[in-house]
Design a protein around this nucleic acid. Structure first.
Length: 508
RNA sequence: GGCCCGUUCGUCUAGGGGUCUAGGACAUCUGCCUUUCACGCAGGAAACACGGGUUCGAUUCCCGUACGGGCUACCA
């Protein structure tokens, strides 16, 4: 029987998810879906000290916004601590782990000493026999310490001189000598398991077939292999895929929340407010990104489909995803490209969909029924190709919604010539007589009127725009006039002309 | 420091012993279109980190060096 694929995303609730974490979740999700398997969410809440209120909800909500839906309710490691203790005990009983009584203070002292001597202290096969643990203490001493409640941890007894091998889906064969694996703490003195113990047990018990996680876990992966072996599960050990990190756009190092602040882009999927400091961070959602473009951008950061396609729906990503197209080197996050992806998705959005939201925004700003749905839809069509985010539409297109009070004097001073006044007056008359008030006939009328005044259309075209909108640039001129309709166009034109004749009163 | 992992245009990347005059995308520049801005179209500039091998031949394989990153906690 073939085991079906099951992956998981296992964040700890210590703060907001950043884009590296989201990408890890995304790849795990895509991989599972691609193979018709399941994707699970597990909250790794075994660190009581670093627990942050609200982080779990944040993680769930972020994934939801991204469209990454787990197939089962999320599991929480703190829900079943007995099982970790039981397995830790078993490891001790079977001689693959041991009790260690060294206090943090004592270990710190040993470390300091080693550093002073120019060495690095590691709790491993080479040092454990000099320390205070169930390997060095007599059985009675150990029993007494345990009975009197001396704090102790359980450590993995890493055998010396063994070669540990495993296959990484991204990095192929990985082989490590056990001598450089330290005796990792499995169970902390507060009775909580560490990540190492807990995730191995949980992954095994929940039938995880592929562990997809960040590269920061690569160095401890050999210890995890050892754990599977000692626990007797090596033949069912999941496969590993260690993903490269995401680096900051400039300079060096991995992306952090400070970079976003510093350079003006989000690093979190959705808004995060730190419960301790009350610091607020904007997310991609608040910055106006569609979840589709966010996901699209993230998917292509460290992975490629092997084709030239760049715009992908989630379904398309699932179809195209493959671990052997994951890049080994870390990727740098590029805010420019992120914006480009959003623009791509915005262009693909149906007009009526955009119009609906633009309408809501306009309603808030200008009141109910200020504009007809047809007018708003027309604005969307004109505005759409020139924006990357929806929120830009009412801003860059404000002249569509407000009668101009300010006019671009720079253009007027430069281009307005004596004698243009009569031309524009004729134009008003001609527009007024135009039966079919549409872009093409308006343009025709405009050109004909210009010619009859012996003017090159180009000389006065931008002036027409300034008179109507106050702006030097903007959406396509004649389609815009068509959208305004005759009444509004003539009104705006008269308004603009009034401004100009007052402005140039001295030189006619 | 030690141990791991990595290194193709500014960025994301394709490719992988001869087809590489190294391909695409973002950004950038030029031109076309246009009154403008944007879109679009056409074009330009732009990369195999370095040094040794192996080979008839290396960007591609191996080894070093440099650089970058990760790990080095009773954090995940």
């Amino acid at each position: 029987m073939t085991t079906s694929v099951r992956t998981r995303f296992a964040p700890s609730p210590t703060g907001p998810l950043h884009i590296g974490g989201v990408r890890t979740a995304l790849y795990a999700y895509l991989f599972a879906r691609k193979h018709g398997g399941e994707f699970l969410l597990r909250i790794e809440d075994t660190d009581r000290k670093r627990f942050v209120e609200g982080a779990e909800d944040y993680i769930v909500e972020s994934l939801k916004w991204c469209g990454i839906q787990p197939d089962k309710p999320s599991a929480r490691q703190s829900d079943d601590l007995a099982i970790y203790r039981r397995e830790a005990e078993r490891l001790v009983t079977e001689g693959n782990a041991y009790l260690a009584f060294d206090t943090p203070g004592e270990l710190e002292a040993v470390r300091l000493e080693a550093t002073a001597a120019g060495e690095t202290f590691t709790y491993d096969h080479s040092t454990r026999m000099k320390l205070s643990n169930s390997l060095t203490l007599s059985a009675d001493e150990v029993k007494n310490k345990v009975r009197s409640g001396d704090p102790c941890v359980v450590r993995l007894k890493v055998p010396a001189g063994q070669e540990i091998r495993f296959t990484d889906l991204v990095r192929q064969e990985v082989s490590v000598l056990s001598d450089r694996v330290d005796d990792k703490v499995l169970l902390k003195s507060d009775g909580m398991p560490t990540y190492h113990l807990a995730h191995v047990i949980d992954d095994h018990l929940s039938g995880i077939t592929h562990v997809i996680r960040g590269e920061e876990w690569l160095p401890s992966a050999p210890a995890h292999v050892l754990l599977y072996r000692f626990l007797g599960w090596e033949d069912q050990m999941p496969e590993f895929a260690h993903l490269p990190l995401i680096l900051k756009p400039d300079g060096k190092g991995k992306l952090s929340k400070r970079d976003g602040d510093r350079m003006g882009f989000p690093v979190f999927p959705i808004r995060w407010k730190d419960p301790q400091t009350s610091e607020k961070f904007e997310g991609f959602r608040e910055a106006g990104y569609y979840p589709e473009s966010f996901i699209n951008m993230l998917a292509l950061l460290g992975w490629n489909p092997g084709t030239d396609q760049e715009v992908f729906t989630m379904e398309e990503l699932i179809g195209a995803f493959s671990v052997n197209h994951i890049h080994k080197a870390p990727a740098r996050f590029d805010p420019d490209k992120a914006r480009w992806f959003n623009a791509q998705w915005l262009q693909r959005r149906p007009d009526h969909d955009l119009a609906e939201r633009l309408g809501a925004t306009l309603e808030k700003k200008y009141g109910m029924d200020s504009f007809t749905p047809e007018f708003i839809l027309g604005c969307v069509r004109l505005l759409k190709p020139r924006v990357q985010f929806e929120y830009e539409m009412p801003v860059t297109g404000s002249y569509l919604f407000e009668h101009p009070v300010h006019f671009d004097d720079k253009v007027l001073d430069k281009k307005w010539k004596a004698g243009f006044q009569p031309f524009f007056e004729s134009l008003v008359g001609a527009f007024n007589k135009t039966e079919t008030f549409n872009a093409s006939s308006l343009e025709e009328v405009f050109r004909a009127t210009a010619e009859s005044h012996e003017l090159k259309p180009g000389k006065v075209l931008q002036l027409l725009r300034v008179l109507v909108t106050g702006e030097s640039g903007g959406v396509d001129l004649f389609p815009m006039l068509e959208l305004f309709g005759k009444e509004k166009t003539l009104k705006r034109l008269a308004n603009g002309l009034a401004y100009v004749s007052a402005k140039f009163v001295d030189h006619g």
